[in-house]
Amino acid sequence: MDFLRPAGWQEALAAKAAHPDAVPLAGGTDLMVELNFDRRRPERLLDLGRIRELYEWETSPDGVRLGASVPFRDLVGPLRARLPGLARAAHTVGSPQIRNRGSVGGNLGTASPAGDAHPALLAAGARVEAASLRGTRMIRVEDFFTGPKRNALAPDELIRAVHVDAARGPQEFAKVGTRNAMVIAVCAFALALHPHARTIRTGIGSAAPTPLRAREAEDFLTGVLDEGGHWEHGRPVPPAAARRFAELAAAACAPLDDVRGSAAYRRHAIKVLARRTLHWTWTAHTSRTGREGEASCA
C-alpha cells in the first residue's frame, strides 16, 4: 500500500488522475474503520490532510463555500448562524472526537443513506464542487447520490467544496435514534423555509436507498402556503394541511427493515418528524417576522 500526501490541491488532482484507484482520506472516521476491520485494502491512500484550503470556508451573500474537509465541529461552532440546518445535523454526528475530524466532504464521499449532512444539504439547497485535472463541475446535491453508498464522482475527481445556499428562513433537522449521541440515524428529516422564493424544501435520511427530497410534500405545502396567503399573514398552517404534508413525506420514503428499525416504524417516524419540523420552522418564521402564528407547545 502507498501513502500519498500531496502538499497542495493541484498535486492532489494530479495524483488522483495518475492513480484513479487511490482512495482519498479526509478525517478518516469512515475510512479508518474499514481499514481497521480489513474490509478494504486499497493499493493507495491519498491523504488530503496537508491541503489547507480544504479546511477553510468562504462566505458571500449567496451562501457558503465550505471546504471539503471542514470538520463538523466548525459547523456546530463558527458556521452555526449561517448554516443553521447543517449545524443542527452536524451536532448530532457521533461524539466530540468524531466531530473534530469527520467532514461534510467525507460524509458525501461515503454517501451513506444515513449520512446526517445529506438531508440538511438537500433542504438548504447545495451543490458539490467536483474537480479533476479536466476541470471543475457543480453537481446539485439531489443528483449526487446515485445509490446506496454510491455517488456521482468520476474516478479522477475529488470534492473541493460544497456550496450551500444562504439560509433566508428557519431550518430544522431532526433525527431518530436510541440515544442523543453516537447513533446512526434510524431516520432523519430536514426542512428549510425559503421565504424569499416562497418555497419550502425537505431532505429525508435513512429511509430510502439514498437521501432524497420529498418533492410531492414540498409542492403540496408550497401550494397551501401560497394559496392561503400564509407568507403574507403568517397564520399557522391548517392542521389538515400539516397532516397531509407529513403523509406525503412518509410516502416519499422507500425504507427497509434492518437492525436499527422496521420499514413501518421509519415511515411513521418520518411522518412525525415532518409535522414537528414544520411546526418549529413556521413558528420561528412568524415570530421572526413579528407576525401572528403564536403556537402552542409541540
Binding site: 479508518m32 466530540p96 468524531i98 473534530n100
Partner: peptide
Amino acid sequence: QGECGSCTIRLDGDLVCACLVA
C-alpha cells in the same frame, strides 16, 4: 471504530480517537 473513546488523545490540540487517525 471510534465508538468507545478509550483511545482518546489530543492531535494538534484536538480531541480525537487515535484508532481513526492514519
